[in-house]
């Protein structure tokens, strides 16, 4: 059974939320829907749920970008070594630029991937049947049937 509480006032919503979570309801069963990002609401939740793991995706992506960048440049130049401008074959200053850009690219793509995997967005059910709550703050609690 789904219990739903709608609030127009943010303060009321927050009070109710704190109440519900403090009362021992499992956080997975509590769903809050709100129209704009709200750090206070997040802080409340994060007392009971772990923080987002997205940063690890970003880190992994960034690192793979750096390594990949250097790997691409160094391995290709060793594969067919051609002298240009007398510069040493492994021109680190030049390759840093490539690695840097790839760090950012892979970091961004990895973050996006992480987001998709973690937040389950795109959500195909909701694409077909969207749920709109407007500017209201909504609290949905799944309670077991008695």
């Amino acid at each position: 059974m789904k219990e739903e509480f709608r609030f127009e006032d943010r303060e009321e919503f927050i009070k109710k939320l704190e109440e519900v979570l403090a009362s021992g309801v499992a956080p997975e069963k509590v769903n809050a829907v709100y129209p704009h990002p709200d750090h206070h609401i997040e802080e409340i939740f994060e007392k009971y749920v772990p923080k987002s793991k997205l940063k690890f995706f970003t880190l992994l992506g960034g690192l793979s970008g750096t390594i990949g960048g250097f790997a691409l440049t160094i391995l290709t130049v060793l594969h067919w070594p051609m002298i240009t401008g007398g510069k040493p074959l492994i021109s680190i200053p030049a390759f840093i630029v490539i690695a840097f850009e790839m760090t950012i690219l892979f970091g961004a793509l990895a973050s996006l991937t992480g987001f998709v995997l973690l937040s389950r967005v795109p959500n195909f059910k909701r694409i077909l049947y969207p749920e709109d709550y407007g500017n209201e703050f909504v609290l949905q609690i799944e309670r077991e049937d008695p």
Binding site: E42, S52, Y133
Partner: peptide, 18 residues
């Protein structure tokens, strides 16, 4: 286009990080 966005906490939590 909106990928079925609802605005749940879970969505917002990861979204803010992203």
């Amino acid at each position: 286009l909106s990928l079925g966005w609802t605005g749940t906490f879970k969505e917002w939590q990861h979204y803010n990080q992203l």
